[in-house]
Design a protein around this nucleic acid. Structure first.
Length: 278
DNA sequence: AAGCACACCTGCTAGC
DNA sequence: TGCTAGCAGGTGTGCT
């Protein structure tokens, strides 16, 4: 559930309350959360370093350290990055990493399903991006995603539009929820072949990608009943009230009243209006 | 080589 | 009411 809008909301929180602070100590208790290096290496790479800049690429959070390395965070399914004012704050279940900062506050990584991960990346390419994330595709909000660029990405693709939107090597940041909302906005069916779009449909899709993600960022992401996404301060998002199709199977389409359908596609659930989308 | 199924987990829920 | 099977979804891997 944490997708581009939720990760961007957390990034903005980091920028506001954590950037400029210095890491005092690192405590790793989870077994799987630090997996690209040993917890000792992870701690050593962070301890004493100042957090200079909060960035994002797709669903990855990128916190630039003063020595040029990058603290990379991925929330995956159930990860939560929380900033608490003091170390005495009650520690939530499934807290796997605690990073104490020089103002007495703590950055905590909470993740019941343990799919999420943190690591410190030392190697970067000429554009300053961690080499470990080199395969990530176009970020729809950071890079310019116009019809030309989107059209080139869609060309020669044999997959469905849904699978295309979920492929992080093509576009980075869109997950199951926003893929469905974007396709509704673009009035395109999820099982349409990616390479079959007309130029007008490509323009509609490019606009829908940028609009839906931007609006979701503005409303600080989507907090669902089960997935309980929260931002850095523990607050809920508000975009769920704007969902047109996701989680609305059987309910009337907000545009035409036809019941929203739900189908299995590309291994995931797809929600759509069979009347509005073609 | 691209595209697919599956593994990785735990919490919630639908159904008995 | 209490139990359990099944589902939820992001990404890396391994197979076709």
């Amino acid at each position: 559930v944490p997708e581009l809008p939720e990760v961007e909301t957390v990034r903005r929180g980091l920028e506001r309350s954590v950037i400029g602070r210095r890491v005092q100590s690192v405590h790793v208790t989870g077994r799987r959360t630090i997996r690209r290096q040993t917890p000792a290496e992870f701690g050593a790479a962070l301890t004493g370093r100042q957090l200079l800049v909060a960035g994002r690429r797709g669903k990855y959070l990128l916190i630039g350290l003063e020595d040029g390395a990058t603290l990379v965070v991925h929330l995956r399914m159930s990860g939560q990055l929380l900033h608490v004012p003091g170390a005495a704050e009650p520690v939530a279940d499934h807290t796997h990493v605690r990073i104490a900062l020089d103002d007495g506050s703590e950055l905590r990584f909470v993740d019941p399903r343990t799919f999420g991960e943190l690591f410190v990346a030392a190697e970067h390419d000429s554009a300053g991006r961690p080499v470990a994330l080199a395969a990530l595709g176009t970020d729809p909000l950071l890079d310019r995603l116009g019809p030309g660029r989107l059209g080139r990405l869609l060309a020669n693709r044999r997959t469905s539009l849904k699978a295309f939107l979920l492929d992080q090597h093509a576009l980075a940041g869109i997950g199951n929820l926003y893929a469905d909302e974007i396709l509704f906005r673009a009035r395109l069916l999820p099982d349409r072949r990616a390479a079959s779009l007309t130029p007008a449909e490509v323009r509609r899709l490019a606009l829908a990608v940028r609009q839906v993600l931007a609006e979701a960022v503005e409303l600080r992401g989507s907090s669902l009943r089960d997935a309980r996404y929260r931002d850095l301060q523990g607050d809920l998002g508000a975009f769920q009230s704007r969902h047109a199709v996701y989680g609305r199977a059987g309910q009337p389409c907000i545009r035409c009243g036809t019941p929203i359908e739900r189908a299995k596609l590309a291994g995931r659930s797809a929600h759509f209006c069979g009347a509005c989308q073609r």
